[in-house]
């Protein structure tokens, strides 16, 4: 097992190298240049500054030289400074992580809390009215464009009912609230975003859980268990459910990179300072150091996520062994 992990970890290095090369060249060869000083056209902004900046950023050097310079920095874990505000790229990313991570974790928990029981019940009562309405609802939510759903919810829950604030993270007087007040305030602000974020994933997982459970219930050991005279609840929940949950563990691993991935659309609508918008703005302004840092982080997380998924799968499923591979 440990040799397998080491091999996989070593395999990440060439892959990562490939990813950085490809993305470096894609983003540099794409038309457009950094727009650090040209976010709007202003005749008072002298064109000389742009040339001076290009020199300072090293953009006048040949591409492969630029790549090597970048690579040298990365090896020392120096991701450089943003072109837009000259802040260290890592600092800019780090300040966005807590929100994105928290939001996605909350959404993930919510998804599991809703999807697993719904999926299981659907499977047990397969083809019942309950099953069909769950299927229909999950398809329905899956079918709605995020921003549309978000706007509808905001209009209904925030404006009609006045339950939640429209956007933002905290109230303006947040710092003067008591600890409980702060917690309540945060929950009220994050409820709709988390809910909307969860809706897309909840549909998928419910379906997945349902088919796993149906599959599990078909297994011979279920019949054996029933024949042994075990109570139905024990059959369902300790035998079938356990096996049906195994593949879901994989999903957890695969959702690791997603935990740090934001969505521009979602963050724009709810005015949340997450990673999605940071990355989007970086691409739009051609903030090369920031784009590259994001790509590296996403790639590393994705690969680690895949690895964790594979390992955890092996741990929970004794039939899989990585020894001979």
């Amino acid at each position: 097992m440990s040799t397998y992990i080491i091999r996989r970890l070593l395999g990440i290095i060439p892959l990562l190298f490939g990813i950085t090369v490809v993305s470096f060249f894609i983003i540099r060869l794409a038309p457009g240049k950094p727009v650090a000083v040209e976010q709007s056209l202003n005749p008072r902004v002298s064109p000389e500054l742009r040339l001076r900046l290009e020199k300072q950023f090293g953009l006048d050097k040949p591409l492969h030289v630029q790549y090597l310079i970048w690579m040298k920095q990365i090896v020392r874990l120096d991701f450089g400074r943003s072109y837009i505000d000259s802040r260290p790229v890592m600092e800019k990313i780090a300040e966005r992580i807590p929100l994105t991570l928290g939001l996605n974790l909350a959404a993930l928990v919510l998804i599991f809390l809703i999807a697993v029981p719904l999926g299981v019940r659907s499977a047990i009562k397969a083809d019942s009215a309950f099953d069909h309405s769950v299927t229909f609802l999950s398809f329905l939510f899956f079918a709605a464009p995020t921003f549309w759903l978000a706007l509808l919810f905001m209009q209904f829950f925030s404006i009609q009912l006045g339950w939640f604030p429209i956007s933002g993270l905290t109230s303006l007087d947040f710092e003067y609230f008591s600890a409980w007040g702060k917690a309540g305030d945060s929950i009220r602000h994050l409820f709709l975003p988390v809910f909307v974020a969860a809706i897309g994933g909840f549909a998928g997982l419910t379906r997945y859980m349902r088919s796993n459970m149906i599959e599990a219930l078909r297994q011979p050991y279920i019949a054996t268990a029933r024949a042994k005279g075990l109570p139905e609840s024990a059959v369902l929940y300790s035998h079938a459910l356990r096996n049906a949950l195994l593949p879901v563990v994989t999903i957890l691993g695969l959702s690791i990179p997603g935990l740090l991935g934001g969505s521009v659309i979602f963050e724009s609508i709810f005015a949340l300072p997450g990673i999605g918008r940071l990355f989007y703005e970086a691409v739009m302004t051609r903030d090369y150091p920031l784009i590259m840092a994001e790509v590296v982080i996403t790639a590393v997380l994705t690969m680690l996520g895949n690895l964790i998924a594979d390992i955890s799968y092996a741990c929970v499923d004794p039939r899989i062994s990585y020894k001979e591979r």
């Binding site: 724009s268 005015a271 300072p273």
Partner: peptide, 17 residues
């Protein structure tokens, strides 16, 4: 307050935010 989307700005106005 930074609110990137004009429709959200409008909704905020509707709640005197």
């Amino acid at each position: 307050r930074v609110i990137p989307d004009v429709s959200t700005i409008f909704l905020e106005l509707q709640t005197q935010g």
